[in-house]
Design a protein around this nucleic acid. Structure first.
Length: 468
RNA sequence: GUCUCCAUCGUCCAGUGGUUAGGACACAGCUCUUUCAAGGCUGCGACACGGGUUCGACUCCCGUUGGAGACGCCA
């Protein structure tokens, strides 16, 4: 039997980091087993679903390079389809009409909770007589369909947790069809997963309680349920389920910060899973190779921004300059610099000069902005420290010598500085720091001699002369 | 509150009866260096607790405690 898995986000918000990781694990499992990865949009909540969000979800998946083999399918396209199954289920005697209004329910629920008891639907409509039902129907009273939960126990063997069991008395007679005839999540999921031949349901463990309900629907259909794997949740610093309130959770927000998709995927993969040998940097192919539920943790994991930063900087460092050039265009544009207006070779060198420092692509413009604009203000402390009379007098001499350099390469410039320092018995820092400050206005930055080469002779001399 | 899940360094993971309990991030120090980073080295730092089982428990069982999740005509 070929493996078929799905990711089933609801288009009521951006693609969440947690959903992204669920998608990743589904993807890894599918690829590992030569199976199919399906995208299904769970939009049965018409009120809260939107086309924009659907587009964002698709765009997010695309950015992550988690390509789906089938879909996207939309549950809203099958609305009538779900209801078609009701007569079949009714015949089993496993579902029943409930005419209780939300208001009535609310009232009864309140009373029960006041007595500090757990609320569960009280089955008021379970044993309505044929006549009563007819009467209600004739009066056009709205009703929902509920599943009757018999006595006993419900259990399943989770691929990650092992057997999970729950007494049926803990499961209420839940609703599968709303009074407006639309299916509720638990019902739509079962119908779809079955229709699509989903073999493994891999989802967050916040769905465990839904699984029990869904199992009862499978039972009524007389159909073998799929295998389940409930993933531990991704947590925030406070160890609560990661949510909008926890900070940035939208996948595209990470893209916009300049996180590389490969780094992001690598990072989220490692929350809740790791290869046996503790490797940290893994390509998607390696992950596919190594993925197994045996290595998936049961415990929820905190989303550690610091580690993401570290990993992203690793990926940036190893990305080649040409590729970075392409990726960086929008980030520079956003800060008002059109790098395509400059000589590409020069931009490539600029990128190279700071790529080991950047943690996010977004940092490049700031890290390199002095290459693109004249310096008007110099670091205050730096000025006090480095623009002293003695140091400036050295610079003055250096400027003259620099003028005579024919090939203005970092090697040649460096040699010139080294020779000068030795000849005059001073410290390299005494001329290097003032030079850096004059060129960039900063006390820190890329390798100085490389900077000089990038600026070229003319611009270097211009900037140096300006501070003398 | 009820039910379910979970429990190794601050954080993410290794560890599946006998280990000096390992790696990574973070943090601190040292080193390298023209600066900041990066790199290299070192350090700090954990088996929640209590009972069993066993010759022997971080590893198995049971409790306790703690944390999380679910308790919608949301998904």
């Amino acid at each position: 039997m070929t493996v078929r898995v799905r990711i089933a986000p609801s288009p009521t918000g951006y693609l969440h980091v947690g959903t992204a990781r669920t998608a990743l694990y589904n993807y890894l499992f599918a690829k590992k087993n030569n199976g199919k990865f399906i995208l299904r949009i769970e939009d049965t909540d018409v009120e809260r679903s939107s086309k924009e969000m659907t587009d964002i979800i698709i765009e997010s998946l695309k950015w992550l390079k988690l390509e789906y083999d089938e879909g996207p399918f939309f549950q809203s396209d099958y609305f009538s389809h779900y209801i078609d199954h009701i007569p079949q289920l009714e015949k089993t005697g496993g579902i029943y009409r409930c005419f209780c209004t939300p208001e009535e329910l609310e009232e009864r629920k309140k009373k029960v909770i006041e007595q500090k008891k757990a609320w569960k639907y009280d089955r008021k409509c379970l044993n309505l007589s044929k006549e009563e039902i007819e009467k209600n129907l004739n009066e056009k009273k709205p009703y929902v369909w509920r599943v009757f939960i018999p006595e006993g126990k419900t259990y399943f063997d989770d691929l990650i947790h092992g057997r999970i069991e729950r007494d049926n008395s803990e499961i209420e007679d839940f609703i599968i069809v709303r009074s407006d005839k639309t299916p509720v999540y638990n019902f739509a999921v079962v119908v779809d997963d079955y229709r699509m031949g989903v073999t493994h349901v891999i989802r967050g463990d916040d769905h465990i309680s839904n699984t029990f309900k869904q199992l009862h629907i499978y039972r009524l259909f007389g159909v073998e349920p799929p295998k389940f794997a409930h993933l531990p949740l991704i947590l925030d610093e406070k160890k609560a389920k990661l949510s909008k309130r926890s900070g940035t959770v939208s996948v595209l927000a990470f893209r916009d910060m300049g996180v590389l998709p490969e780094a992001f995927v690598n990072f989220i993969a490692l929350i809740g899973w790791s290869p046996k040998d503790n490797r940290e940097i893994l390509s998607i192919d390696e992950m596919i190779q190594l993925f197994s539920f045996e290595n998936v943790a049961k415990k929820g994991g905190v989303f550690d921004y610091k580690k993401l930063e570290w990993m992203n900087s690793k990926y940036i460092t190893k990305t080649d300059d040409e590729k970075l050039y392409e990726l960086l265009k929008p980030f520079y544009k956003e800060s008002g610099i059109d790098i395509e207006n400059f000589e590409k070779e020069k931009i490539l060198k600029i990128i190279f000069s700071v790529k080991e420092k950047a943690r996010y692509l977004k940092e490049f413009p700031y890290l390199t902005e002095f290459f693109f604009k004249e310096i008007s203000d110099y670091d205050k402390k730096g000025v006090e420290k480095f623009f002293t009379p003695d140091r400036l007098s050295h610079l003055k001499v250096l400027v003259k010598e620099l003028e005579n350099v024919e090939k203005f390469t970092s090697e040649n410039v460096e040699k010139l500085y080294k020779d000068y320092v030795e000849k005059n018995g001073i410290k390299g820092a005494d001329v290097i720091h003032p030079t850096r400050l004059a060129l960039s206005g900063r006390t820190e930055g890329p390798s100085l001699f490389l900077m000089m080469e990038i600026f070229g002779k003319e611009e270097t001399l211009k900037r140096l002369t300006k501070v003398l």
